[in-house]
Amino acid sequence: MRSVLFVVIGLVALAVLGPLLAPYDPTAIDIPNRLSAPSARFPLGTDALGRDILSRLLYGARWSLGLAFLISVLSLLIGTSIGLIAALGGKSADWLLMRATDTFLAFPELVAAVVIAGLMGAGTWSLIFALSVTGWMRYARVARGIGLSVQNQGYVVQARLAGMPGWSIARWHFLPSLIPSLTVVWTGMFARAILGISALGFLGFGVQPPNPEWGAMLLDARVHMRSTPLQMIWPGMAVVTCVLTINLAGDALRDALAKQSSHE
């Protein structure tokens, strides 16, 4: 748990401090040094336009992690609201909202995101919209389940009868039950968002060049796969490292919560 936490902090620090650590401007074109192998001057080599790959990776962390954070939080807010309205809004609202959730689930996430982002026109805003709109359903299901079970707990019924105001019940009784499970779901969705951003970037529907997003970097690198295979390795490694770390952190969190609840 602790070592995973250190890696998470390290990755976030790299993303935040990236511009300070990067040796070059990630979009500075340097044709004489194009496709150069790793060297003291360019630690990870350069791409087809002579841009320093290390600098692009470091700046790319801001795109991938920052956008993934934004997308996962947006879909958390959408999903939790829908789930809670379904749980508390009565039977017909529940049925309608859950069928809406099923409907959104019926489209494979990435296929839907590609279609939405592609039809809206490739760009960062379309990317955020496409991945948030296709990513809220799991939160909605979890929030609804917890909402339904908490609502019927004795202490909540008691609080309501005692005249505790609605927002107060939400703050003191619903929120503490929601936070642990939603955090576990959130880590999983954060990781998925990183994969989604890079996949759309790779297909050309995501963050647009010359911005150094990892998926878009892979798209550039693919053309020169035969001559400079290493150029294709780095961005992929970056994606794998981030997704693996976040997944492991999520697992550790889930285990810790399970242990805690079994002690109670």
């Binding site: 994969l195 996949a199 693919r222 796969m225 294709m232 994606v239």
Partner: peptide
């Protein structure tokens, strides 16, 4: 299994081609 879940399918494909 954890590693496999973190590898983007398209990158794995590119690595296998390589």
């Amino acid at each position: 299994a954890s590693l496999g879940a973190a590898i983007p399918a398209y990158w794995l494909g590119l690595l296998l081609i390589l």
